[in-house]
Design a protein around this nucleic acid. Structure first.
Lengths: 185, 185
DNA sequence: TAGCTATATATCATTAAGATATATAGCTAA
DNA sequence: TTAGCTATATATCTTAATGATATATAGCTA
């Protein structure tokens, strides 16, 4: 049994709880501020916004514009806040995720060790860049001084740092191993 | 542009390249040996197996059984191996993944700090258990002595260890921060 | 004997991701 | 100057992926 939940629904409610906005605003926010740990597509956002209003969890007001399409601005309702809250209290489910790099490693007695090394190096470089971005985000966050909200954003930036460091350390470890394999062959 | 790729297709080809098997075998293998970094559902496996055979990347032989449904055993072909190989050489794409725990943290100025602490503690416990499993897997791998294949499995077990340690360390860090927040309020 | 597990294939409904369609305005580089 | 890019804004379509369920039999166990 165990109903299948639409996570996007709660993610969107959460955003609207921070401040009202349009589908376009929501998408932009996910891209700019959440992209390291969450994404939403228009294919989810627009239909869900309509459904949320139909369910009374949000209300929509239309702002006419000239030249550009009208802005549909959604705000969360008290019912919406209640639904969001009960989701926040449920234990967070872990999503397994697909770690392509590991699949390729395991299947890769099929390619050369040199090819494997290239793979891992690209992987490592990606995470070095991402770690760097995380450090910048953290620096920016530490400079602002918005009580109450700030600590949570800081924690999430740290999350990114911890993870990226783990990826990089694993890559280094694996690269030494692979280089040893290459020499002994 | 940039075609959308079906990763499951390559994952399944990779499994069949290790040894021929049925859809059921493939599912079981993913659950037993890959579940920490990759999963496949029947909804993907069976249609893809048929498609692979239609494309000449696998061949299927039927083994009649009494009482149980016939076993459809798929083997990879040379063309299949070529397709797999070219995928293995492409740079592994990173999937962003949805880190529910972070969403809940950021949205959670809405629940009590105590609730947040409970969330993070559950998260931490989950990863402590998983780290433990990883250590066992690694111990088992180190006891076997299958040249050539073993190192890749070991590297993937280490990957799990590095990641789980990062999750646990982040959780500890975050918990101290949350407890400080609770005291100062 | 009722319920659970294992074997085995198959499909269905959702959920999610990614790409594209439509339309206008403003900016920029050939 | 005009062709192309970026930004604003909504909307939809296809494909991929997940999770649940259907069907059917055998063997084990409480």
């Amino acid at each position: 049994m165990g109903k299948r939940e639409n996570k996007s629904k709660y993610a969107i409610l959460g955003i609207l709880n921070m401040s009202p906005g349009s589908g376009y605003d929501i998408k932009k926010l996910f891209e700019e501020k959440f992209s390291y740990f969450w994404n939403e597509s228009y294919g989810q956002i627009y239909p869900i916004l309509r459904r949320l209003s139909a369910e009374g969890l949000t209300v929509c007001s239309v702002k006419r514009q000239t030249g550009k399409p009208d802005r549909h601005i959604y705000s969360i309702t008290d019912r919406g806040r209640k639904v969001l809250r009960s989701w926040l209290l449920e234990p967070a489910k872990r999503q397994v995720g697909r770690h392509e790099i590991i699949l390729k490693l395991i299947f890769g007695d099929h390619v050369t060790v040199k090819d494997q090394i290239d793979q891992i190096e690209q992987f490592k470089n990606h995470h070095i860049r991402e770690l760097d971005e995380m450090k910048n985000i953290r620096k920016q966050l530490e400079s602002i001084d918005h009580k109450s909200v700030k600590p949570y954003w800081l924690m999430s930036a740290k999350y990114g740092q911890y993870l990226n460091k783990a990826y990089i350390n694993w890559a280094d470890d694996t690269l030494t191993e692979l280089r040893r394999l290459m020499e002994n062959s």
